[in-house]
Design a protein around this nucleic acid. Sequence first.
DNA 1: TCTATTGTTACTTTTATCGCACAGGATGTA
DNA 2: TACATCCTGTGCGATAAAAGTAACAATAGA
Lengths: 225, 225
Amino acid sequence: MATTLQTLDRGLRALEIVAEHAEGVTIAELAEQLAVHRAIAYRIVTTLEGHGLITRTREGPVRLGAGISLLASRFEPQLRGVAQPLLQRLARATRATAFISVAQGDECVVIMEAEPEEGLLRVGYRVGSRHPLTRGAAGIAILAARPPQPDDDEAVRQARTEGFSLTRGQLQRGAVGVASAIASPQVRPGVEACVGVVAMDDLDTDTAIREVMDHAGQLADLIGQ
Amino acid sequence: MATTLQTLDRGLRALEIVAEHAEGVTIAELAEQLAVHRAIAYRIVTTLEGHGLITRTREGPVRLGAGISLLASRFEPQLRGVAQPLLQRLARATRATAFISVAQGDECVVIMEAEPEEGLLRVGYRVGSRHPLTRGAAGIAILAARPPQPDDDEAVRQARTEGFSLTRGQLQRGAVGVASAIASPQVRPGVEACVGVVAMDDLDTDTAIREVMDHAGQLADLIGQ
DNA sequence: TCTATTGTTACTTTTATCGCACAGGATGTA
DNA sequence: TACATCCTGTGCGATAAAAGTAACAATAGA
């Protein structure tokens, strides 16, 4: 019947709660947020700590541990580190917020973000935020990189021929997004990523399209070696 | 009696096994490595997938998911991205392998690494590798950044006064390491990190000491704002 | 066509987990 | 000092949750 495991689920929720508290949480606070007894929270913390995913200061709060970095270093190792400077350059060139998203099931998740240094208003694109692949420039760019399907949307077909996708107001009123897939089929089939920018209506789309596609090519080269 | 949770422990072990297989693993392989029945592995996979930590290609293997990046972005967000270019510069300036380590319990764990581009032989310092705080330049640098303890080792006291630690052959015969703590007590108390370099015996220690301390200061400034 | 492998789900058994209870330490207050 | 109030940490029995079995569908290969 139940296809998920309660204990594992609680442990992962605990990990997320710890992640949300940069200043750390006590076991008692953790138990309250999980709505479980403190003894349970204590055992969860002990187990997570055994795997290095969290760490504890003496008698004090719990925070994320170095095991997270180990996992992150295994997840698209080529991308991390190399991509951040590129994203910064893209953000500067387009005066817009640059991001990298990957497909996760039938959703699109932001994994990295860089904001322009200048400008009065900034558009933030929160790392970890997700939305359906069928909505927003990022998802459409990823769908366009897949083999053609008979039920593809018009926007997807257009993005497939042009090499980029441009959407207005699909995720937020007044927001415009441009994205292009990062092509690396030979390296890691199954990993689907795209790079793009998002901004208010005043985005210079010609520049954005050119820069986004240029950076998508650079990223593909960097991770394709 | 048992202070850890078997189900959570298995789930985290599964996550680590998936991380070790960049090309992906099938549920059957995962079940074999965990020494559990396929049905159990299936439920573990479903639960991990629900939290975005792993993702599945259609009918195919399992690999790490975007949730890892979300967690990583919460773990020392200032450090990630900003630090990698600095590490590259440090590696180039010293012609040695540069690294950042953090304290995890009474151990010292490498979380980032950068290797010099030139040179015939490279010294690799694997991300995720760990050793006691009392051994190696990195651990001593972290201990030296803590308030003085009566049972401090001589090397720790010396590192505290000089601002850096230098060890030879403690972790590996013929290896020499230099490290200095990243001081950021006001920002995130409880996070203890250090930066350093490791190389064969031919390290130019004067240059290394100067560069490591300089970069430690830069990193402290960057994350201290 | 037959066989082998894998993913997936229903059902029964059993065991790991839950939640209570209590001990102990640190801190604050009268 | 005595008392109160937080917190962490840990046996132990009842029970809910997970383990294990079996079975089915789908796919691939011989």
